[in-house]
């Protein structure tokens, strides 16, 4: 069977200790639930000498809804976030998205921070050693060419985290810790700015840094978000289409502001503001126009294992259906 390569496992007993080890470089990796990292280490696509298990760190835990910014520890399990009654009330799109990640077992182990840092996925990398050897490797393994965009600029493996598009439209931020002169220093960045276009390293978190919490601003009145995921199966699968729509309406039900976020394109999700439609009522015409706009601007790639042209068309329909939830009571909302 598939076994893990030899590893040093460090169980971090303090945030400082964890950050110290993580600062050693890419061969040291942070481990939360392990549901992504362990699989990638087993197939050999991720190489590491040391994993730092973060489980016990209290800094990474806790859900605090008291302030204007709701704080969710990065180490909170997906199941706990998804089933948190207050969060379900405040951010139903987020809890819905998290409840659709992979399988119950994976949500019982995987964490919110882990999902945000999920490695990019591609049908040429999420394979066995033999498979990658047979194909001669690619930029993300031992090869020299990308097979998705041959001759292109870099790795375009897909960001496949269900949580990201929702957190983007919600305007969420993440808190990132690092050490400076022995003291823990925190910085904050918007989820929308967290990702880069390099599929080899798409999360803008430096060696020695650690994502510690997610901060989500409470929604103003009239604002709501919806998440739509499409995958072949209802369970286990990563998303093949992943999009979140947020619309803020004024008292007359006209659009005040809105945005659409799209995942599973390349390494970086896309955020599309809906400024053009401000002041417009939310109806089928608007839904069709927004969906067409998203279709125009997003080009799913043949990186994950499904026909990319269909994924593009399906993205259009999912955006359409997300918006329809505002004016069709029977359409499934979250």
């Amino acid at each position: 069977m598939l076994r893990l390569p030899e590893l040093e496992v460090v169980i971090a007993d303090s945030l400082v200790a964890a950050l110290t080890r993580l600062a050693e470089g890419r061969h040291v990796r942070a481990l939360q639930g392990g549901t992504d990292l362990v699989a990638n280490l087993k197939t050999g696509q991720t190489k590491a000498q040391t994993v730092v298990a973060l489980g016990p760190l209290s800094e990474l835990h806790g859900i605090d809804t008291s302030g204007e910014m709701v704080r969710i520890g990065a180490g909170e399990r997906l199941v706990d976030v998804a089933q948190n009654a207050e969060l379900q009330e405040l951010f139903p799109a987020l809890t819905y998205a998290l409840a659709r990640i992979a399988s119950p077992q994976i949500r019982n182990a995987g964490t919110l921070g882990g999902n945000l840092c999920l490695d990019t996925r591609c049908r040429f990398i999420n394979q066995s050693d033999l498979w990658r050897e047979a194909m001669g490797g690619c930029l993300k393994s031992h090869g020299h060419e990308c097979h998705v965009i041959p001759g292109g600029g870099g790795c375009v493996a897909a960001l496949s985290a269900d949580s990201v598009p929702v957190l983007m439209v919600l305007g969420a931020e993440v808190e990132i810790a690092r050490l400076q002169d022995g003291a823990v220093l925190l910085r904050r960045t918007r989820v929308a700015d967290l990702y880069d276009t390099d599929g080899l390293r798409h999360v803008r978190i430096a060696d020695g840094e650690l994502l510690t919490a997610v901060l989500v601003p409470k929604l103003p009145e009239g604002a709501r978000a919806v998440y739509r995921k499409w995958a072949v199966r209802q369970s286990i699968d990563f998303p093949l289409v992943s999009t979140a729509v947020r619309l803020d309406l004024d008292r007359d039900g006209k659009l005040k502001q809105g945005k659409v976020a799209v995942g599973v394109l390349g390494p970086r999700p896309r955020l599309i503001p809906l400024d053009r439609w401000v002041g417009r009522p939310i109806d089928e015409t608007l839904a069709q126009q927004v969906a067409a706009q998203v279709f125009d601007r997003c080009h799913p790639l043949p990186n994950v294992l499904y026909d990319h042209e269909y994924r593009r068309e399906r993205l259009r329909v999912e955006v359409l259906r997300a918006i329809r939830t505002w004016f069709t009571p029977t359409a499934a909302a979250n």
């Binding site: 049908r123 999420n126 072949v232 209802q234």
Partner: peptide
């Protein structure tokens, strides 16, 4: 052709993730 490496004969799906067998929800 599909995009892909210049090698013949690779399996598109060789794991239970990629070879999608229905779950209880499907």
């Amino acid at each position: 052709r599909e995009t892909g490496p210049g090698v013949d004969g690779l399996l598109a799906a060789s794991s239970l993730l990629d070879y999608r067998m229905p779950t209880s929800m499907d």
